[in-house]
Computed example of a mutant assay.
Amino acid sequence: REYKKAKMDDTKEDEGYDVVEHFRRLIESEPTLEKAVAAIQSLLLVVKHSKASTIMGLQVDLKAATDRLITFDENPSSVSLKAGCELFNIHVNRTSLDFPDIHECISKIVARGDDFAQMSMKSRMKIAKFGAQFIVNGCVVFTHGYSRVVCGLLTFAAKIGKQFSVVVCEGRPNGTGYKTAKFLISKSIPVKLVADVGVSVAMEKVDFVLVGANGVVESGGIISQIGTYQMAIIAKALKKPFYVASESYKFARLYPLSQNDLPETKRQLPLPPSAEHHIPDDEPLFTVSNPSSDYTPPSFISLLFTDLGVLTPSAVSDELIQLYS
């Protein structure tokens, strides 16, 4: 009864604030901002604009806003977005236990939330410092897709005087490899682009693999751009270290055992049509399957570079317990 009353009386969001619109504007205005951080900043404003008169009413407001954000953003990044939203809601619940007065609770949530958002945005620099230690002069780094944290790590390594080159897959069908190559070239880092089907050939000529992640799951495995898993398989077969760079707010309470256990929100990416071998869309015997993400088990991962330090996959579960307890 108390929950229903709170939901009826205390969920009137300020008409001047729309959590989804604010989230969208943040992403568009700051391309380097991670969606999980943008979601936390948007939820902070929900707290500031909430007209709830009880703690329960505030929690209902946040639950509704979180659901709207997750529904709005149906893509692979929603794994990290969900993890960020869950961490923030846990932060609110902890604060409400320490400060039962609604006004004092809100002021503490806002103060602590601002600190958390700032710490989250500084995570990439910590990761860059940890990961740069593994880059030595003359080495060749193999990466896949486009990852802000990976690009930041490589840029930092070049800035402190490391001499290295990068090999990147083209990242079909949306060409994320070209985006990575363009960015690294602008930082004066030599780049070689290879076809996705040429990973096994290119792997023999590199020193290690470095990729980002959309989410790090409880087992220490990762959910990342499609093609990451096959790259990890080839790297292990050729005895090449496979490193992952990821912020701790992407640690998610998920435990997939196979590709079939990935979140339902994964999106099918459209394949570019072939001008020479065009097949009509209405052909009944022809279908296209091209998921946007895949799952790489922890047995294929050597180390994870995070803002919490350099971790083995088995250490992720311990860090998750500390984050969520």
Rank of each mutant, 00 (worst) to 15 (best):
K187H: 14
I27P: 01
D207I: 03
N290H: 08
M125K: 13
I301E: 02
Y243W: 12
K162F: 10
E2S: 10
T180H: 08
E34I: 00
I106V: 12
G113E: 04
P313L: 04
P272T: 13
Y324P: 04
L304T: 02
A232G: 15
Y178F: 13
V211S: 02
S258F: 09
V60E: 11
I55P: 01
S120L: 08
S147P: 03
S78P: 03
A111H: 14
H103S: 10
L154S: 00
Y324N: 11
G215S: 09
A235N: 05
T95E: 11
D207R: 05
K7L: 12
L33T: 04
P256N: 03
S258T: 13
V216K: 04
S96C: 13
L69V: 01
E319G: 06
N260C: 06
R25E: 15
A213S: 15
A64F: 12
V166F: 10
Q133M: 03
T54R: 15
A111Y: 14
K162Y: 07
T11M: 04
A128G: 02
S248G: 07
E74P: 02
A117K: 00
D307W: 01
V211E: 01
I279V: 15
M231A: 11
L26Q: 06
I223L: 06
K82T: 08
K162G: 03
F99M: 11
L262K: 03
G161A: 13
N75F: 09
E28Y: 12
F242G: 00
V217C: 06
K12E: 13
V46N: 01
Q268W: 06
E86L: 13
L33V: 05
K159Y: 14
D282H: 12
E170P: 01
A202P: 05
P273A: 12
Y295C: 09
A237P: 01
L238E: 15
Y229W: 10
F208P: 04
P313E: 04
S292Y: 04
I185E: 09
F183A: 08
T176Y: 12
F300D: 03
A38E: 04
C105D: 10
K122T: 02
S292K: 03
D98E: 15
N174V: 14
P241A: 06
G177A: 04
N290Q: 08
